[in-house]
Amino acid sequence: MLRQVQKLGRTTLDGLQKLGRANLFLLHVLSGLPDILWRLWLLVAQVYSVGVLSILIVTISGMFVGMVLGLQGHYVLSEFGAEQSLGVMVAASLVRELGPVITALLFAGRAGSALTAEIGLMKATEQLSGMEMMAVDPVKRIIGPRFWAGIVSMPLLASLFSMIGVLGGYFVGVGLLGVDDGAFWSQMRAKIDFEEDILNGVIKSLVFGVVVTWIAVFEGYDSIPTSEGVSRATTRSVVYSAFAVLGWDFVLTALMFGED
């Protein structure tokens, strides 16, 4: 019994230590921003690897989610005779919530895990150590560009997701289920506010971008440099990212869309 308590204590202390390391790590990464700015090519290369290569999964998922929203929304709204409001429903759901959140989860799974594995593997093959010995700071040179690339890519991907989703909902609602074309867009335009909905969605996706990329990059950097260690780190990065995104989503939603 006592040993369980001891174990709990040890786990907590390890967790706190890890949290501390993660924060110091973040500060270290942030301090490398000037280096990135005058070597933009590194950032561009990473935006390709992290952002461009995620376009496919984001657009396809966005399309399906939008289409399902169209279907489900129509089904529910027709009970109240309010099918013409389908546009608002689809757009609001996507822009405020589903766009940022689902994109963040997809990003964590595709790009986040890849980042963790890549960095973990670099650690395991002593490339990071080698770089240190060559007087190049691996945190600024390798981690930095990847970190900023994630932050830059997330809002772009989330916007893509929302746009494709709205079009998907349009295709199903107006194209297949007979919702009026004009009503779909005009209701949407009337009710969706740029500052309240769109900007807040972008802010959310920025926050998620920071969180997911930070976790992915740190787990790789902190991983045990064996094949098992790297695989565990990769799993952890996806799982923790999911928790973090959903948790922050709640906090941000409460702050942004709470009562006036």
Partner: peptide, 19 residues
């Protein structure tokens, strides 16, 4: 320290080339 390391070369067991 970084200045010093520029004057040191190190050959790791695995080579540690950037893949």
């Amino acid at each position: 320290l970084y200045e010093l390391r520029k004057r040191m070369g190190m050959l790791f067991q695995s080579g540690a080339l950037l893949t």
